[in-house]
Simulated assay, not measured.
Amino acid sequence: MTPTHILHLPDAAATLALGQHLGHILPPTVLLLSGDLGAGKTTLIQGLGQGLGIADPILSPTFTLINEYTDGRLPLYHLDLYRLDPAGVATLYPELYWDGVEVEPGIMAIEWAERLLDPPPAYLDIHLHTVEQSRQITLTWVGPVPLAWAAEFRPDTLV
């Protein structure tokens, strides 16, 4: 059975806190983020960077497409596919990141992941949407679940 968690996050601070928690516990992983504009995708990744111990500010790579942060517990590769069509996404060769052959294995966070033609074989699917003045986030593993997740993910302590 695929583990799914649905969390209600009352504000941006709670979204940031969830990202920080993920940054503390995740092994090298692909995160596929989807949701409307303003749903909290970048805020979650900013928290992830903080949890990884990355000192640089995490900015949305809407125009640069890929930002790489290598000074944390694990590297963070942040992609934003908003401006690309699926064919354009393929030209970024995202599989080089999740295969870990040409880059150091880390956490690959992809915003607007629904534009990927071929997702990786294993990933954490993260869907955010706004509900009135708060956010709802659904976390679903696709493929094998890392042991660290099962042992250390404690959503009840976050909100």
Rank of each mutant, 00 (worst) to 15 (best):
T91F: 05
Q50W: 00
G88Y: 01
L92W: 02
A87H: 11
L52M: 12
L116M: 14
L84K: 07
D85E: 15
L65Y: 15
E68Q: 15
G49P: 11
D80E: 12
R115C: 05
I58A: 03
A87Y: 09
E102L: 15
L84C: 08
Y69E: 01
W112L: 09
G72F: 06
A55V: 09
S60N: 02
I107R: 08
L81I: 12
T91P: 00
G88E: 06
L92E: 05
R115S: 03
D71A: 14
G53P: 00
E102M: 04
Y77L: 02
I110E: 03
A90M: 12
L81T: 11
A90N: 13
L65A: 06
H78I: 13
Q50K: 15
H78Q: 05
L79Y: 13
P57V: 12
I66C: 08
I58W: 05
L96K: 00
I54G: 06
T62A: 07
D80Y: 10
P86C: 11
Y69K: 04
V101K: 14
D99K: 07
G106I: 04
Y97F: 15
D56K: 15
N67W: 02
A87N: 11
I66T: 01
T62R: 00
I58M: 06
L116C: 13
Y97W: 15
L76F: 11
W98N: 02
Y93D: 14
L76A: 05
W98E: 10
A109M: 09
L81G: 01
Y69C: 10
L65Q: 10
L59Q: 12
D71H: 13
D71K: 04
R73W: 07
A109E: 08
A87S: 13
I107T: 13
T62W: 07
L76K: 09
T62L: 03
P94F: 08
F63H: 00
G106H: 08
V89S: 01
I66P: 03
L116Y: 10
E68D: 07
L65R: 04
L84D: 00
G53R: 13
G100Y: 04
L59S: 14
E102H: 14
L52R: 10
G72R: 02
Q50N: 07
T64C: 13
E95L: 07
L96V: 04
I107N: 04
D80K: 04
I66V: 15
R83C: 06
G72N: 00
W98T: 06
T62M: 11
